[in-house]
């Protein structure tokens, strides 16, 4: 039975096909050897490489988001987002029991109230609907060949969609964190998805920092320096004071904009990895 995994189709190549064969047991799946990115011969090499990294160690976030050689930053972000959408689906069943139309009639994330953009006219969906619509919408967009026709390069006008997608997906995490904490924690332990997402967004500027409302001390790997954490409670306190968005006192905001950059510079552990996409 284990031999079902290994099969060579041609006499010249001895590399086993990295496929799942019908009838294989779960324990026997994914047993193929680790390959470097360049050695993977497939049209979806980047995706497979990413998944391989995940299988090896899903907690080593830095390794996961590091841009491998020879790949465009945009393609890497794209593949990460695809993977994210795929994995985020697992959050929904655990939320499903808690997050009902009655418990969360609107998509709230600690004071921010969002409208679901997946409809012809944006409407106010209950949270669970919002989450499902947004996730489906993001998946469809990423799969849409009009915007993302190839896995090798992304046309320029489609780049802004990555940011919009990231922004909207973040709200799912935000809602889960603030309103369904246990489900969030449990999921995060299983997959480290949130921290990976946040680090990715920070690194590639997918989401403005002022929108990252979940306190960053939940990131396992990151040394929490003063300014980011001081910034986030400040925002939190503003948001939670009223249910609608109020004017942001300008000094805090400018200090965050100034301080964020300064704060980021302090994280000297990864200076080389700052990708400047200006």
């Amino acid at each position: 039975m284990t031999t079902a995994v290994e099969e060579s189709t041609t006499t010249t190549s001895n590399t086993p096909l990295r496929r799942l064969y019908p009838g294989s047991h779960v324990e026997d799946t994914f047993q193929w050897p680790t390959l470097a990115l360049d050695d993977i011969e497939s049209s979806f090499s980047v995706q497979e490489y990413l998944q391989q990294l995940l299988r090896e160690d899903y907690t080593d976030i830095q390794r996961l988001i590091d841009l491998p050689e020879g790949i465009d930053a945009e393609i890497w972000q794209y593949e990460h987002l695809r993977q994210l959408c795929s994995q985020l689906n697992y959050l929904i069943p655990s939320l499903d029991s808690e997050c009902t139309v009655d418990s969360c009639p609107e998509m709230k994330a600690d004071g921010w109230l969002y409208l679901c953009a997946a409809h012809p006219v944006t409407k106010s969906c209950p949270a669970i609907d919002y989450i499902v619509h947004t996730l489906d919408g993001a998946t469809m967009l990423l799969n849409n060949s009009k915007y993302f026709p190839s896995r090798i390069s992304i046309p320029e006008p489609s780049l802004k969609h990555l940011q919009a997608i990231a922004r909207r997906l973040y709200r799912i995490f935000a809602h889960a964190y603030f309103h369904h904490r246990e489900a969030f924690e449990f999921f995060e332990n299983e997959t480290c998805l949130h921290s990976r997402f946040v680090r990715l967004s920070k690194k590639y500027s997918l989401i403005p920092k002022s929108l990252l409302i979940i306190p960053r001390s939940t990131d396992g790997d990151e040394p929490s320096s003063n300014s980011p954490t001081s910034e986030s409670p400040a925002i939190l306190s503003r948001r939670s004071s009223t249910s609608t968005v109020q004017e942001i006192p300008d000094d805090t905001d400018t200090s965050t904009i100034g301080a964020e950059d300064a704060g980021d510079e302090d994280q000297g552990s990864e200076p080389a990895d700052r990708v400047d996409d200006e």
Binding site: W112, Q163, P208, S210, L211, V245
Partner: peptide
């Protein structure tokens, strides 16, 4: 600048 613009765009999707 882009970051701030995105922050504003995020606000545009608020229900308030």
């Amino acid at each position: 600048k882009k970051s701030y613009i995105q922050y504003l765009l995020n606000d545009l999707e608020q229900s308030s």
